[in-house]
């Protein structure tokens, strides 16, 4: 079996370096298999977070050849041959050790989102009412979208920007047929929705292929425009007394 060189980041929050590991490859291998080989035979102290190895738990997020990806879903035959393969931790989050990051900031953001509040009239929900929302439920919280988003990655606006993962959650709540919470103010002022410039990197890296930008972020921007930037709608509401 031919060997491929893996350049794997080793280090912690203070810094580190990429170390070369030759790994024998076999048909069907994914990057996580290679890291397991490295752990098993070359560097037992290599820290890697993983769980299901089936692209469903969202644990093994990293940057393979510079692109945010799930290591368990990145086949070696999809990468250019004849060159070393780089594996780095997600850049947006602080490194704990090697490929393991501290993603706890995301859970803090999640707590700030106004929760689901059901209508009291006990509406019956039909399939057409939940078609849109079901897509958002596919999210596995791998945080690759948060990692690639330049607002967080390059501009480090964690204090004022929720990030694509939480716009997906917000869209799921906002479009829920039975939810009555008004999140317009939160979307405009607290979530930092206006900082998103819809460059779709989040959509490109989503392993669940959620159309984050088209189906979550842009509809949220349109709802904010309805509420705050549409004088015609305001006049219409005044005349006909509708929201």
């Amino acid at each position: 079996m031919p060997d491929v060189t893996f350049k794997v980041f080793r280090g912690d929050a203070k810094g580190g370096q990429a170390i070369d590991y030759p790994v024998p490859i076999a048909p069907g291998m994914v990057v996580l298999d290679a890291l397991h080989y490295i752990q098993g035979y070359l560097a037992p102290d290599l820290a890697v977070r993983w769980n299901c190895k089936a692209a469903k738990c969202g644990s093994c997020s990293a940057e393979v050849n510079g692109k945010p990806a799930l290591m368990c879903k990145t086949r070696l035959d999809s990468l250019p041959t004849g060159r070393p393969i780089t594996v780095y931790p997600m850049k947006t989050f602080p490194v704990i050790k090697d490929l393991v990051c501290d993603v706890s900031w995301n859970y803090d953001v999640n707590k700030k989102i106004p929760p689901y509040r059901p209508a009291k009239d006990g509406r019956k929900i039909y399939q057409e009412d939940v078609d849109r929302v079901q897509e958002f439920r596919k999210c596995i919280e791998c945080f690759l979208c948060q990692d690639v988003c330049h607002v967080l990655r390059e501009h480090e606006k964690k204090a004022e920007f929720a990030g694509p993962r939480f716009f997906v959650r917000l869209a799921g709540l906002e479009m829920h047929p039975n939810d009555i919470t008004d999140r317009s103010e939160f979307l405009k002022n607290s979530s930092g929705l206006g900082l998103c410039n819809i460059t779709k990197c989040c959509t490109e890296v989503c392993p669940e292929e959620i159309h984050i930008t088209d189906n979550a972020i842009i509809p949220l921007k349109e709802r904010v425009a309805d509420r705050f930037f549409d004088p015609l709608r305001w006049v219409f509401a005044k005349i006909f007394g509708r929201k």
Binding site: H150, V151, H155, L195, V205
Partner: peptide
């Protein structure tokens, strides 16, 4: 902003679609 995904940007100041871009 950004030129391509996961590629470094030339300037650090960034306001997105706020302020003038409203």
């Amino acid at each position: 902003h950004p030129f391509a995904c996961a590629v470094g940007e030339p300037h650090r100041d960034y306001q997105g679609e706020t302020k003038l871009f409203l």
